[in-house]
Simulated scan of single mutants.
Amino acid sequence: MLNGILVIDKDKGMTSADVVYHLRRVLHIRKIGHAGTLDPEVTGVLPIAIGQATKLIEMMHTRPKEYIGTGLFGYSTDSYDATGTVLKEKKLIHPFSSAEIQENMNKFVGEIVQVPPIYSAVKVNGKHLYEYAREGIEVERPQRRVEVKQYDLTKEPVFDINTGQESFDFKIKCSKGTYVRSLVNDLGEKLDCPATMTYLRRTASSGFDITQAVKLKEIEENPEKATELIQPIDAFFKEYTQVDLTEGKWLKVKNGAGISLETNAKKVALRYNKKVKAIYEKKGKLYRPSLMLLQNE
């Protein structure tokens, strides 16, 4: 039985659910789920929790995500990316300087209120926004608070004098629920020039990055490689205070009992036989169960 996180480098054209379906079929495991949906047009890091690691999915969502991408000044679309219908167009006479673009990117860094694109999976009254969009029904989109930790240019923007369009490459680090498409669209609004996202790749998510990722095709062609490529559950808790349990305390933990520990950490990863078996949280004078991972072998 596999237990851990398989970091997939998702290809363009696949949904996150597609990846889970293919892995279930090739690995013959039902207990699989993904953390952090990627749009079909977006590539990159898609963490797949397998076995006991499926218990971590909610925690995985809380970790920051990182992206690299490309935006384009010159037109905007209803989906905020190049797949949508063009709404506005504007030819640039003079391109924006790197300093102008970066100055306005900086205005989005921090905690902001964001309105998701109409073509998104956000639900209103039990229905996805993209369903309303496809039916031509206007609906008020809910605002959400997100945190943008970084929004930077990564190289000099490129101006095409023939089209009057200017492309720019960026890097973003943000909290869960952040729509990068919206950040590109809203940057255009700040500069009074329509903008859309033309490319996006996620480079990190849930504490894992692209250097740890593997292509789905590699697993499909060699299913046995999943055992050596999977990230152990313990890797997710590397920043936690680790406590190795004595035989006596392990017996208590197995039964979900509270225990005393010589540490002041709010949460601790409890290990037995060199594996994390539980996450305990301090409540009063004792540490009590927050998450049980007894089958982590």
Rank of each mutant, 00 (worst) to 15 (best):
P142L: 12
T196P: 00
H22R: 15
Y67W: 09
D81M: 06
W250D: 06
E140M: 06
V122C: 02
Y280V: 04
S205C: 13
I112Y: 02
Q143T: 11
G13L: 10
A257R: 15
N104T: 01
D81S: 08
T163G: 13
L293N: 03
A99L: 14
K123F: 02
Y75M: 10
I259S: 01
I118G: 00
A35R: 03
L270K: 03
F96A: 09
Y287M: 04
G164W: 09
L87Q: 15
V45C: 05
I32L: 13
R201Y: 10
K10I: 12
Y67T: 07
S205D: 05
L6I: 12
E89D: 05
Y199F: 14
I161G: 02
M14G: 00
V7W: 01
N3F: 00
E224Q: 14
T54H: 05
R288P: 00
Q114T: 12
L46C: 06
T198R: 05
V7D: 02
D160Y: 08
A53Q: 08
G4N: 06
K88C: 05
G126Q: 12
I118E: 04
E156R: 08
A49P: 02
V109D: 09
D81N: 08
D9V: 04
E140C: 00
T196S: 14
D11K: 13
S79K: 07
H94E: 13
E156V: 03
N162C: 06
E220Y: 07
Q143D: 06
V146N: 01
L87I: 15
V180M: 04
I210M: 15
P116F: 07
P289A: 10
D234N: 12
L6C: 07
E220N: 12
S175T: 10
R202A: 06
E228N: 13
